[in-house]
């Protein structure tokens, strides 16, 4: 019996080796229906954002119909009209562009900088490690939104500065994550092997350690986008991000506050847009984690 079992194990191991990491990942990922739905939504949203000029039925800022102020859904205006006579659907479609860009770009900046710092700290340790990690600790000490507000207070309000602010508070998490992975990987045999044949630090870090950190970075990246979108929207809601009449979702919510009692749809639709988008990114992140984590084997 033990012999038979061990042969089965060898068999599976052999069939697995045939699969590329990519197809292995896809095999696991597509089994998760919720994550697949989230992925489909994110792809759709991205397409909407890219094609916004062709999809939006009206100009988001300069179309106005003063005879339909605060009017609910109709055939002409599917999601109704806001208090300044603008088409809410068009504004949400254009807003997708702003929110996705803000979310993606800010986390991408955080990822690049954070990963570089994490690799440095993890690989060299010593003073590099101490300085970088203490800086990260300092940043961690602030609640995220407070740090972002502080940065906006220094840089001034505006969407570009919101991206910077959100990026800054993404940096330490990426740095810490990558550092941890690096510390673990650099003591593995294959790294020792690479070093023993005389590979330079640069080659070891970039060719052998960095690829090993990618899966956790990707998972964290997708989950972080959701948080960043919500932070950017919050900052706009507080009047520090996108300025009127920019159709940013948070700014739309802020503008809707005064009319909420008489025209709830003015607030509901942008709020739904934020909610569904952030939920989709978080579910996608969960799915990615499950698919990329070798410890989890399902079905």
């Amino acid at each position: 019996m033990p012999e038979a079992l061990s042969s089965v194990v060898t068999m599976t191991a052999m069939t697995r080796e045939v699969r590329s990491p990519w197809s292995e990942f896809w095999r696991k990922f597509k089994k998760q229906h919720i994550a697949m739905a989230a992925l489909a939504f994110v792809v759709l949203l991205t397409l909407i954002a890219i094609l916004a000029p062709y999809l939006a039925p009206f100009d988001p800022e300069n179309f106005f119909d003063y005879d339909r102020l605060n009017e609910g859904s109709s055939l002409v205006h599917w999601l109704g009209v806001d208090s300044l006579g603008r088409d809410i659907l068009s504004r949400i479609i254009w807003g997708a562009r702003i929110s996705l860009t803000a979310g993606f770009v800010s986390v991408a900046i955080g990822l690049v900088v954070g990963t570089a710092l994490g690799l440095l700290a993890g690989y060299y340790e010593g003073w590099w490690d101490r300085i970088i990690m203490r800086l990260c600790d300092a940043l961690f000490a602030f609640p995220g939104i407070l740090l972002a507000i502080g940065i906006i207070a220094i840089l001034g309000s505006g969407m570009a500065n919101v991206v910077v602010a959100v990026a800054v508070f993404s940096i330490p998490t990426f740095a810490r994550l990558v550092r941890g992975n690096t510390l673990m990987l650099k003591h593995l045999t294959y790294i020792e092997a690479a070093r023993s044949i005389g590979a330079s630090d640069w080659t070891i870090v970039m060719r052998h350690i960095f690829p090993g950190t990618i899966s956790s970075v990707v998972v964290y990246f997708s989950m972080r986008i959701g948080t960043s979108i919500i932070t950017a929207a919050s900052l706009s809601f507080l009047g520090m991000g996108a300025q009127p009449p920019t159709p940013e979702w948070g700014a739309m919510l802020d503008a809707a506050r005064s009319d909420m009692l008489v025209a709830p749809h003015v607030a509901i639709f942008p709020a739904l847009a934020i909610f569904v988008t952030v939920l989709a990114f978080n579910l996608l992140g969960d799915g990615l984690r499950d698919a990329l984590d070798p410890k989890i084997e399902r079905g």
Partner: peptide, 9 residues
């Protein structure tokens, strides 16, 4: 805010 955006339009 409404007045300013209206004037802008």
């Amino acid at each position: 805010q409404k007045v300013s955006q209206f004037l802008q339009q």
